[in-house]
């Protein structure tokens, strides 16, 4: 677990974000363009421009326990449009990482669960085994029959591979993943 600064001095969290991803949210002019175009803004408790401001205001706890960035679809719309060239999508992704690294309980359980199961599939096969991954996710999230009709329609059309494909040089992938075990 890492120590995330924020309480020591009034600008610690903003500086830490700069250090982690190179983006200075202090450059934000609160024009709101990022949030206006964000496809998931209606699902967020803090919209992208609010996230920028909360970082500036050193609100580490409030942010790392927020739902906001878990909904970010990484579509890059905000980043493309920001008049001050802030890579907002990168900041959102950084907040996801900091939540897990800092040992915070993520406000959204489903996204980190999905990520873990997805990566597990790659670690085991070298490629994603969609059917296995989705079934595992549905079981683990307590909704075994989610999208069952859709699944049936896909299978009837042989639209989804029934068996995993394992790559030959799986060791290479396992050795890369071994370095990141603590986050998964």
């Amino acid at each position: 677990m890492i120590e995330i600064p924020g309480t020591q001095d009034a600008h610690a969290f903003r500086r830490f974000i700069i250090e982690r991803c190179g983006e200075d949210t202090g450059a934000c002019i609160q024009c709101g363009k990022c949030s206006a175009g964000c496809p998931v803004a209606p699902d967020m408790d803090y919209m992208p421009n609010q996230v920028m401001e909360l970082i500036r205001l050193n609100q580490r706890e409030r942010l790392l326990t927020a739902h906001s960035f878990w909904f970010c679809a990484s579509c890059q719309t905000c980043t493309i449009r920001c008049p001050h060239a802030i890579d907002i999508a990168l900041v959102m992704n950084t907040l996801r990482k900091l939540t897990l690294e800092g040992g915070y309980a993520p406000a959204e359980k489903r996204m980190p669960l999905f990520n873990r199961i997805f990566l597990d599939s790659i670690r085991k096969h070298g490629r994603v085994y969609e059917l296995g991954m989705v079934s595992r996710f549905n079981l683990a999230s307590g909704q075994p029959f989610k999208d069952a009709l859709l699944g049936a329609a896909m299978m009837a059309r042989r639209k989804i591979a029934l068996l995993p494909h394992r790559i030959r040089h799986l060791d290479d992938i396992k050795s890369i993943f071994a370095k990141y075990k603590k986050y998964m």
């Binding site: 990484s74 992704n93 996801r96 990482k97 996204m111 980190p112 999905f114 990520n115 873990r116 997805f118 990566l119 790659i122 070298g126 490629r127 994603v128 790559i167 290479d172 992938i173």
Partner: peptide, 10 residues
């Protein structure tokens, strides 16, 4: 091998 998609990025 798989590119890792957004979960690896996260």
């Amino acid at each position: 091998n798989c590119c890792g998609a957004s979960p690896a990025d996260a």
